[in-house]
Write a protein that binds this DNA or RNA. Structure first.
Lengths: 202, 202
DNA sequence: AGCAGATTGGACTGTGCAGTCCAGAGGGTT
DNA sequence: AACCCTCTGGACTGCACAGTCCAATCTGCT
C-alpha cells in the first residue's frame, strides 16, 4: 500500500501502464481468456518486466487489475456515491451508473465478471474481488442508513437488505446488458430497484 | 434434437452420464477451470468416449451442459413458471427459486455464470447460453403480459421491462449469493423485485 | 567517472491441456 | 457362425501457456 520504495518513477509508470492495458484486455476476454503474452503484446513490454513488477505472476497482476477497476468504477459514481442520503442523490447515482457503463466499449461489470469467473478457479483472488464489491455495496448501505436516521425511510426498513437488493439489480442488470448487448436491462433493473426503494419511504 | 439414430440405448446413457457429471464439475470450477481429464476422471470414461459422444470436443460438451442445466433450472420452477399470471403464482415462484438454489451444493446460477464466462472466450457458445436465458426470461414476460390483459397490471405497464428487471434481480442476487456464500442476497433481491412489481398493480 | 540497483529483452523450460489415433471389446442382426 | 457397427481404453501428438534465467542497458547517486 504505502511501501512504494521498490520502484522508481519510471518503474511505477510502466507498472501502471501494464495494469491499465491489461485491465482492458481482461475486461474484453476474461481472466482465463487473457494470456500473459496477450498482455505483453498489448503493452509493448517483455516477459521479464511482467514478472519484475508482479513477482507473483498472473495472480498478482489480476489482483492489481481488480483494484484498478474497482477504483475506476467507484470514481465514476462520484460524487453521488458518498451522499446517497436523499432521493435526488439516488436518481443522480442511477444516471451516473448508466452513463458510465453505456460509455464503456465492452459492456458488463469488470468487478462482477471477475468475481464470478475467479470463484471457481482462484478462490483467493475471488475473495479480494468480493471485498471490493462489499466496499461498493457498503456505500449504498451507508446512504440508506442515514436516510433512515433522517426519517426519509421508515424505521422498519433494513438498509442492509435494501442495499443488497439494489446492488443485485445493478449486477444482474449488467450481466444481462452484457449477454444481450443492450443497455436496456440495466436501466430496467435500476428503475425497478429504485421503485422498490421508494416503497420503503417513510 | 430428434435425430437420435446415432447412438444405442447404452450409448445414450453413457452420454447422459457424462453430461450430468460434467455439469456439476463446471458449476463448481467454471468452464475454463474444468479440463477434459477432470471430466474423464469424474465419470470413469476414456478420452475416446468423450470425443465419440461429442465430436466437436469441449465446445460441444459445454453446449450440452448448458442445455442440461437450463432444463434442470426451468424444471425446478414448475409449475409456477408456466402460470405466472397471478400474484400468488409469483410468490410461489419466488419460494421455488430460493428453495432450488438453496438446495444446490454450489451456489450461483449455472446459466448466468456460464454466459458471463463464455462471452469473453467463446462468443458462439455464449450466444447459445444467452438463448436459454432469453427463453427463461420469456416465461416471466408471458405471465406479466397475461396479467396486464386480465387487468391485474395497469395498462401502461411494460411486461418486457418488468420481466427484465425481475430477471436481473434474480441473476444479480445469485451472483452475490455466490460471492458472499449466503442465500440472503437472492432473497433480498427477489423480495425487492416483487415489491417493484406490485407497484405496477392496477 | 564509476558503482549499484532498477529496468528491459528475449530465449528457454516444463507442464498441462485439447484433440488424434488405433487397436480391441461388446452386442446385435442375418 | 460371420459380420458390422457401436463402444471403449489409453497411448501419443502438438501446442499454448506460465514462469525462469541471464545478459544487457538505463538511471540516479556519490
Amino acid at each position: 500500500m504505502s511501501t512504494t520504495a521498490k520502484f522508481t518513477v519510471k518503474g511505477a509508470l510502466t507498472r501502471a501502464r501494464i495494469v491499465e492495458a491489461a485491465a482492458d484486455l481482461v475486461l474484453a476476454r476474461g481472466v482465463g481468456g487473457t494470456t500473459l503474452d496477450d498482455i505483453r503484446a498489448g503493452t509493448a513490454t517483455s516477459k521479464s518486466q511482467l514478472f519484475h513488477y508482479f513477482p507473483d505472476g498472473k495472480r498478482e497482476l489480476v489482483a492489481a487489475i481488480a483494484s484498478f477497476q474497482a477504483e475506476r468504477v467507484l470514481q465514476a459514481q462520484r460524487p453521488f456515491l458518498d451522499t446517497l442520503d436523499t432521493w435526488e442523490a439516488w436518481e443522480g447515482w442511477r444516471d451516473a451508473v448508466i452513463a458510465h457503463y453505456e460509455s464503456q466499449p465492452h459492456w458488463g461489470c469488470p468487478i462482477g465478471t471477475m468475481a464470478s469467473e475467479l470463484i471457481g478457479s482462484d478462490p483467493e483472488r475471488a475473495a479480494e474481488v468480493a471485498a471490493h464489491m462489499d466496499r461498493w455495496c457498503g456505500y449504498l448501505r451507508a446512504g440508506l442508513t442515514r436516510m433512515r436516521a433522517t426519517g426519509l425511510l421508515r424505521p422498519g426498513a433494513d438498509p442492509g437488505e435494501l442495499a443488497l437488493a439494489i446492488f443485485a439489480s445493478l449486477q444482474g442488470g449488467l450481466l444481462l446488458t452484457q449477454t444481450m448487448r443492450s443497455i436496456k436491462p440495466l436501466r430496467a433493473a435500476l428503475d425497478a430497484a429504485l421503485t422498490a426503494l421508494r416503497a420503503e419511504a417513510a
